[in-house]
Nucleic acid binder design. Structure first.
Lengths: 344, 344
DNA sequence: TTTGACTCCTCAAACGTTTTAGTTTATAAT
DNA sequence: ATTATAAACTAAAACGTTTGAGGAGTCAAA
């Protein structure tokens, strides 16, 4: 009846006529409580609708069974589908393992590190998930310094001792370039993600490597970058298309950018996939339904999140983590934005 | 040096030679501690790098300053941009107000209610944010029954005593239909969201009302619905286009659905915006960059999340909440998918 | 000298657990 | 009759904080 009164161990203890300690031990299946009593206590606990007070447990155990994840947000409206899929992967795995997930947002920049500090302070979380690492990542330094367990979801070009789950951007870029070269393209331009991202370097390396192997020169004017948004892609593409000698293919380092590029190309009066090829990276759901459908590199985003979370929890539980670095291989998804043969 | 040792009130008390109680009171600016002492204690606390142990505070205060939000996820890959924008709005506001946000995921269905139960149990969160309410919403019943504070982000057609922030789908639908009628359309079809959503009913009502006012008959065959995904929209559109007397305009209740519809229309060899009009709802970022740009109803998603969060926190803090229901007015964004004049 | 008021502080309980170090009782071995 | 062993439990401390009640000291008024 008395809905608002929480049932505590003490209440149970009174009912069964045992000590609080006995009740606690019984519920945790300690062998030094007789089986009979254990069963009885559990029964009573169930009947009384007992649920342990998490805060008390956490205070005592000095751990929170909670992970933290900070969503980088460029602007209120702008949120990358990549992070959502990642978030779902992380959240699902955390839930499956009985962990809570604390999500915060912040715009990348100087205050970002404060947001992290806030979360790390006061035993709010046991560990953190870091996405989209940068070349010099203050967040990683902070976590290393504070000795908070964490896992990074990013690219393998980070050499440090921490858990890392990544896709292989270099290979991804090579797959794209090889495909375009096979389609007869020589004038291949790049719209990369911002240079401070660890990803960007790797993608650029892959592109250059593949171009070199194909005996294709890399035109400096063709190498651009922009923030990860349609707008950024749109503007970058405009620039490329206005060059004296415009490219015949535009490789982008992100599907969201590619969508912007495609809009610019179309506004320029060109036919995507016929006059000019466009490719993306990530294979977000929209890639398949864009007009025309976008050739892109499939990144196992959900699995990245899931696996990262799993690794982090393993480490938190003190289990030995089999591999510190896990690398997912990308694959190319060829659609009409880059393949003439598909237009028939 | 001793990095891992947390500074506690006791440590400070020893240093300043006062009691733990005095330190606690000083840090909370109690008047019964002399100003001098207060300043001194705060100074020392700062120097020692004291941060309160949140779990201890929460245990004592019996509140967590944490909100819960459960992301409905149709499938691992499929996550609606709407929820992300909502999430960002909620998370930003929560952070701004010093609240934590616990995010969980679940697929709508029978186990969903367990996910909610898990979060509500054990003082994990002080309040919940519910999005995308349904006609008979078990979640809302659960929360009412358990007497947990919550806010619903949805549509105003829910008559109950709880905090509610909503956009006006009925008006949104009317705006769309009026626009299409003005464009000369008579054969207007609807691809609605699933009927169990509170939103769907309201959208349908708006559409019917506007049609009636325009003296337009509503053809039963034109009224369809599907899950919120491109695929769903694609299939629904295929059906509509294969009718003996296909519509000249397809109104959808969600931008994501609209993107699928557009793909189907194009695969059908029709020119969107010229042969047939397509509209969406939500004005997600992609709507502007789709090909052609999508006419849609602008929903202030970020603000919905932000405002809902603000209301909930107000209630949790015991402040009186000015209005129980807040209604945001939608506006129509006309783009080429529905307006011939824009094609010149 | 008592009384009261005021200032500045301390005591100790409380929040709900978990866990260490026992205690009690019964039974078995010496 | 003593001692060891085991089984089934309990008392109490601990986690770090907050808070109501109260105490010591000072000062002024009666």
């Amino acid at each position: 009846m008395n809905d608002k009164e929480e049932v505590t161990l003490k209440d149970i203890a009174e009912v069964v006529g045992k000590s609080v300690a006995a009740v606690s031990r019984a519920l945790h299946d300690y062998e030094d409580i007789s089986l009979e009593t254990r069963i009885h206590i559990k029964q009573v606990a169930l009947e009384m609708g007992y649920t342990p007070n998490l805060m008390a447990q956490r205070l005592k155990k000095r751990s929170t069974d909670t992970l933290g994840f900070i969503l980088p947000v460029l602007s209120p409206r702008n949120s990358d589908p990549y992070f959502n899929e990642l978030l779902v992967g992380i959240a699902n795995e955390a839930t499956a393992q009985g962990f809570d997930l604390l999500v915060s947002t912040c715009t990348p920049g100087p205050e970002e590190i404060q947001a992290y500090g806030r979360l790390l302070t006061s035993h709010r979380v046991d560990g953190m998930v870091i996405a989209q690492p940068r070349q010099q990542d203050a967040r990683i330094n902070l976590l290393l310094e504070k000795q908070i367990p964490f896992v990074v979801i990013g690219t393998p070009n980070l050499q440090r001792n921490f858990l890392l789950v990544s896709d292989d951007a270099t290979t991804g870029a090579q797959l794209v370039v090889n495909h375009l070269v096979a389609q007869g393209h020589q004038k291949i331009a790049l719209v990369n993600t911002p240079p401070e991202l660890a990803f960007s370097l790797e993608y650029l390396v892959g592109l250059q490597k593949a171009m070199l192997e194909a005996g294709n020169a890399v035109d400096e004017n063709y190498l651009t970058a922009c923030e990860i948004s349609q707008k950024g892609g749109y503007q970058a593409a405009q620039m490329l298309l206005n060059l004296a000698d415009p490219p015949t293919a535009i490789v982008t380092a992100d599907d969201v950018i590619a969508l912007g590029v495609m809009a610019a190309v179309q506004d320029h009066g060109l036919q995507i996939g016929q006059d000019i090829a466009v490719t993306g990276y990530g294979d977000i759901l929209l890639a398949e339904y864009s007009q025309p459908p976008l050739t892109t590199v499939q990144r196992p985003t959900y699995n990245l999140g899931q696996h990262a979370c799993r690794l982090l929890i393993q480490r938190l539980k003190g289990e030995s983590v089999p591999e510190e670095h896990v690398l997912f291989k990308p694959s190319l998804v060829i659609r009409q934005s880059s393949d003439l043969a598909l237009w028939l």
